[in-house]
Structures are given as C-alpha cells and as structure tokens.
Amino acid sequence: MSDISRIDSSAQRLDLLLTPPHACNYLTDRQSAILFVEPSLPMESPLYEHLLERGFRRSSEHVYRPYCPQCDACVSVRIPVDRFRMTRSFKRVIKRNADLKAIHVQPGFRDEWFALYQRYIHVRHTDGPMDNPEPEQFLDFLDSPWSDTLFIEFRLGAHLAMVAVVDYQPKGLSAVYTFFDPDLTSRSLGAYAILWQIEEAKRLNKSHVYLGYWIHESPKMRYKARFQPLEAYRDRQWRDLTPEEIEMGVKGASA
C-alpha cells in the first residue's frame, strides 16, 4: 500500500494508505481499491465515529473506505432514527419476530456462534471470499481491540436464531455484521436486526444507525434502501437519498 493523502480530525491529521486495484467482491466486472487509515494509528471510539461521519467503516480493527478506479458505486449510508418511517411491511416483520429474545453479550469466541456463522456463510456466500471460514477469522473479522462492540443474540427459546454484531458509538450505532439461521428465511431476520438496532438507538438517545455501504447495482447490498429516510454521504456531507437516486443509483463519496 502507498500513502495517498491525509484527512483532518479535530485533533490530528491522519495518514491514509491505498491498496493496489483488485477484483471487486460485489461487482464482478469492476476493479476495487481500499483506502485505509494507517494501521499504527491508535484508534478509539470517538475518533472512529469522526471517521464514520466521513464515510469510513471498520473491518476487524482496520478502518477503511472504498476508493476505486473508475467506479464510485459504494455509498456510505445511515438511518436518522428520529425520522425513520415505519411501514406496514416492517410492522409485520416485527410482529413475526415478537417471540425472539435479544441478549447483549460481550465479544469472544463461542462454538455456537461460529457454527451458526458457518451455516450462514455456506448458504449466503458459497464460493465467495468468505466461504469456509476458520475460527480465528471469525472473531478477527467481527471484533476489534479498540471498539465498543456487543454481540446481540436473538433466541427462539434455547435456539440461537441470529447474532447481530454492533459497535456502540458515542452518538450512534454501527451495524458491523449480522448472521442468522438460513432455515428461518420466512422471518426476514436481516430486516428485523436493523429494525431492532433502530429501536436500540432510540432507547439510548443515539441519532443514527450506520449501515455501511449501499450499492445499487449489487442485489446483496440493495436492500438497505428499504429503510427510509436513508442518508448518504456525498460531496463531504450527509443528505437524504431521493426516490430517483434509489431507483437509478447514485455515486458514492467523493475523495
């Protein structure tokens, strides 16, 4: 990776590193490159929230943003929880999952979590870069030594139905990753996890739920536009996506 530029935080300037172009995991006809915050920088939740507010995200302990040659399809999005519009469809999802119990658990490795994660990845990401995960990859991907992360278990009696990994930030929640029992697809568990995080953010008086990147051209990432209003980071500011942009797509964050 090479040093490409710097960004300002309220306290310091941060070095950024750019990876060489490589095959994109979401759009197979494209090349992808990733802009990383210099890994040696001491990271903590307030600084990470500053970066979240500028279109970045974390994977493991690494904070990054897509910065791709000739492509700007990845759009950082978040839900303003006080303005979220509950639809009839979402009410049905909540009613369908009213029998689930949410349990806040500290990060760590659990065989039950990993077994569910393996099943989910095998069904949802077969032959992809995440297929056939190893135990050490599981926790390294989802947790970070500096983040305030919780694993939210959703149980149907004794049965583990879903786990939502959430970063609890000073002003918002960041949805890191969710995996669930692939035999329970009729419950719309992925949507329910986001709806639960919206309510959790309201309960804690937090302003936003960050959903990572919306990619209009990727069916796996398009679902995020169901949650309205949806704010997009574009031209160094957050604004609501318009119906036309949701229908046709919009370019991602400018450099």
Rank of each mutant, 00 (worst) to 15 (best):
L173C: 13
F179H: 00
E199D: 13
H208K: 09
S186R: 02
H208L: 07
L204Q: 09
I198C: 11
L211R: 05
S174L: 04
K202S: 12
I194Y: 14
S174H: 08
R226A: 15
T178K: 07
K220V: 03
Y192G: 15
A193C: 14
Y177M: 06
S188Y: 07
A201R: 02
S218K: 04
H216I: 07
A225P: 05
G212V: 00
E217S: 15
Y177V: 03
A225T: 11
V209C: 05
I215K: 09
L204D: 12
L211K: 06
A175D: 08
L173R: 10
A225N: 08
F179W: 00
S188T: 05
T185S: 11
K202M: 12
A193E: 11
L189E: 08
F179D: 00
Y192S: 13
L195N: 09
Y223L: 04
W196C: 14
N205I: 04
E217G: 15
Y213F: 14
S207A: 11
H216Y: 05
L211C: 12
S188D: 08
L195V: 07
R222N: 15
V176T: 11
S207T: 06
L204P: 02
S186E: 02
L204W: 05
L184A: 00
L195P: 10
W196G: 13
Y213W: 09
A193S: 15
E217P: 11
A191N: 10
T185W: 01
L184K: 02
K224Y: 08
N205F: 04
E199P: 07
H216C: 13
E199R: 12
E217D: 15
L173G: 12
L195K: 08
V209D: 02
S174P: 08
V209N: 05
L211T: 05
K220C: 07
R187C: 07
Y177H: 01
E217T: 11
S218M: 07
T185M: 08
K220L: 02
T185K: 08
I194W: 13
K202R: 15
F180R: 01
L184I: 01
Y223I: 03
I215Q: 08
T178Q: 07
P182V: 00
A175V: 04
I215H: 10
G172C: 04
